[in-house]
Structures are given as structure tokens and as C-alpha cells.
């Protein structure tokens, strides 16, 4: 979905139809029939993977096109040992994280100022913002390169553009959902404008900001892989592309598996944060019957994320030398003509 369109349908699906004029029945039915999470949820994906491996062992899949799971994993392991696969993964993650940070820094204040302070200006600017949100920044990549240079800044600003719109429109949606009674009650109890903003508006909007950030991260990660496939010299997308160019089929699948796992892990991490941070949220990931993570678990998770980010940043700075390192076998090296 386009970033703008994605955000206009609130990511928590149970809001959308109600906003569309759906009846209260939709909400009632929702609560009754939402599936509970169970431990069996890992069984089906595991069974799929086992089926894949079995079919390829039985010779039903042509190994030229579909290698088995074991071969793919072996290729991934080989790339880990000989081509710094993990560093590539962390470089990709660091790019996404930096882009997310930039998008949050730009999108949240913009949405607050337009949605909270100057609604008139917002009404005037909204059509333009929608048009801008439709721009696929990946198309204008050369322009970003001219403006920001050939390095990481161009890539990161493309990703930040992708992530910006879900965050911006998500924040606006959160402000729109703010119960005016709460704001008035706080005012009535003697809170000033600033403290209403800090203690009512921001907490009320933060789950929506976070939901927008989740969509933004997912979109940015999708586009990142595409961008790395065409224009990068490091990162997982580059590894897949390189493997494709060399017709190293198991390696395509191996790097692909790592990308998929990383995307899933990223999403789980954000759901985990969502559940831990926004305990006051009425609906959403917190309502699935799982216990909410405590402050210790949250702190540990954030620390782990920071470590990964730091390694990614170092890897990013050294990407070129990393790939032309003599310890990397020639077939994994960047073409330097």
C-alpha cells in the first residue's frame, strides 16, 4: 500500500469499518470472535518448512529452481562465515532504524502542529500532503543522490520519506480520536494548555503514532531491499541480487530466508514494544491474552536493539572495505571495475 493510503486506514483493523460508518454490531462481533493466540501458531509455519524440505528430498522440486530448506540454510550459513551476512543484516537494520528516527522527528511535530494547533492550515495543505505521500521516492533516487551524495544519506532519506507518511497520517488519526471530554476534564481540573498537551494529547495519540511507525517500518524495509538490489554495495538486498547475478540459487533462497526472518523479527519486536509501552490502550495487540512484558524485559529488549544498531552503524561506515576485504572470497566481492 502507499504510505499515505496505509495510514488512512488505521492499522488496527477494528477501527476502520466503524469510521466508515459501520454499525456498533461490527465492534461487538469483533470482540467475540477475535482469535486467541495459542502455542499452535508456530506449528503450521514449521509444518510448511518441513513439507518444503521433504518435497525437495523426495526429488519433487527441481533443485535448479527450488533448493531444499537445508541447502538454503547451508548457503546462509556459508554466507555468514565467508561474506559477513550478519553484518549485512545489521547494516540493513541500521538503515531502517535511522530512517525511522528521521521520519518520527519530522512527522510527529508536523502532525501535531497541523492537527492540534492549526487545523485551518491542515485543511488547506491536506490535498498537497496526499499528493506528496503518493510519490514513490524510489523513483527519484538519482535526485536524492544529487542532493545528498552517493553515500548512505540518499538511501536513508528515501526510506525516511517512505516511513514519514504513515507516521504523519497515523499521528493525525490519533489526534482525531482524542476524546474532547478528556481534554475538557483536564482543563476543568486546572491543567494549563501545555500540560493538557503533554499529559492528555500525547498519551492519547502515542498508540496511533506507534501504529504508524510500525507500518512505516514495514514499508521502509520492503523498499530498502529493492533499493539495495539496484543501487547498494552492502545489505541483504545486495546479497540476494549478487546471488541472482551469479545464478547461485541456494544463496538466493538463503539470503531471502534471512530477509524474511528479519522482517518477521522486526515486526515481533515492535508488537512487543507496543504491548509493553501502551498499557492503557483499549484494543490492539495488548488484548490478545498474552501477558504484557515488564519494565525489565522492555529495557533488555531496547538495549539489545541499541547494540544491533551500533554494530550496523559501524558496518555501514565500513561497508566498502568490508566487502573488498581479502578474507571475503572473490565471488562475494563488489565489482570494482
Amino acid at each position: 500500500m502507499t504510505p499515505a493510503a496505509a495510514s488512512r486506514t488505521p492499522p488496527s483493523k477494528n477501527i476502520a469499518p466503524v469510521a466508515l460508518g459501520g454499525k456498533a454490531t461490527a465492534q461487538r462481533g469483533m470482540r467475540m470472535t477475535l482469535p486467541r493466540r495459542s502455542p499452535t501458531r508456530f506449528l503450521v509455519p514449521a509444518a510448511m518448512l518441513a513439507l518444503w524440505e521433504t518435497l525437495s528430498r523426495l526429488g519433487l522440486l527441481d533443485p535448479q529452481f527450488v533448493p531444499g530448506l537445508a541447502d538454503s540454510l547451508a548457503a546462509a550459513l556459508d554466507m555468514t562465515r565467508r561474506a559477513f551476512l550478519l553484518t549485512h543484516a545489521m547494516v540493513s537494520l541500521a538503515r531502517v532504524a535511522l530512517a525511522l528516527g528521521l521520519a518520527l522527528l519530522a512527522g510527529v511535530p508536523l502532525a501535531f502542529s497541523l492537527g492540534h494547533a492549526w487545523p485551518g492550515a491542515f485543511r488547506f495543505l491536506e490535498p498537497l500532503l496526499r499528493v506528496l505521500g503518493q510519490i514513490n521516492p524510489y523513483c527519484l533516487f538519482p535526485v536524492f543522490v544529487v542532493v545528498f551524495g552517493l553515500g548512505e544519506a540518499a538511501k536513508i532519506s528515501v526510506l525516511a520519506w517512505v516511513a514519514l507518511w504513515p507516521i504523519f497520517f497515523g499521528t493525525l488519526a490519533g489526534l482525531g480520536d482524542l476524546d474532547p471530554v478528556l481534554a475538557r476534564a483536564a482543563r476543568g481540573m486546572g491543567a494549563g494548555k501545555a500540560s493538557v498537551f503533554l499529559k492528555v494529547a500525547i498519551p492519547a495519540a502515542s498508540p496511533s503514532i506507534f501504529a504508524g511507525a510500525r507500518t512505516g517500518v514495514q514499508m521502509a524495509f520492503f523498499i530498502l531491499i529493492a533499493a539495495e538490489m539496484t543501487g547498494a554495495t552492502a545489505g541483504l538486498g545486495w546479497l540476494v541480487h549478487n546471488a541472482g547475478a551469479m545464478f547461485q540459487v541456494p544463496r538466493i533462497y538463503g539470503a531471502g530466508l534471512v530477509i524474511v526472518a528479519l522482517g518477521l523479527g522486526l515486526n515481533r519486536f515492535l508488537v512487543f514494544l507496543d504491548r509493553g509501552l501502551f498499557f492503557w490502550r483499549a484494543s490492539g495487540p495488548g488484548q490478545d491474552g498474552l501477558p504484557r512484558p515488564g519494565p525489565l524485559a522492555l529495557a533488555l529488549a531496547l538495549a539489545a536493539a541499541l547494540i544491533v544498531l551500533a554494530i550496523g552503524l559501524i558496518g555501514m561506515a565500513r561497508a566498502e572495505s568490508l566487502l573488498n576485504d581479502p578474507s571475503v572470497v572473490p565471488e562475494y566481492r563488489v565489482w570494482t571495475e
Binding site: P35, R37, I225, G256
Partner: peptide, 21 residues
């Protein structure tokens, strides 16, 4: 349902290489 959610989060560009193949 978990499998479908799982599949839905696959990165389409990682798959695109496979589709091209």
C-alpha cells in the same frame, strides 16, 4: 491464521528474485 499472517509479512522483493527465477 498465523501462517497467513506470517506469509503476509514476507518481503515481496526477496520473493521477487525467486519469482524471476
Amino acid at each position: 491464521d498465523p501462517l497467513l499472517k506470517f506469509l503476509g509479512q514476507f518481503n515481496p522483493f526477496a520473493l521477487f528474485s525467486v519469482f524471476m527465477l
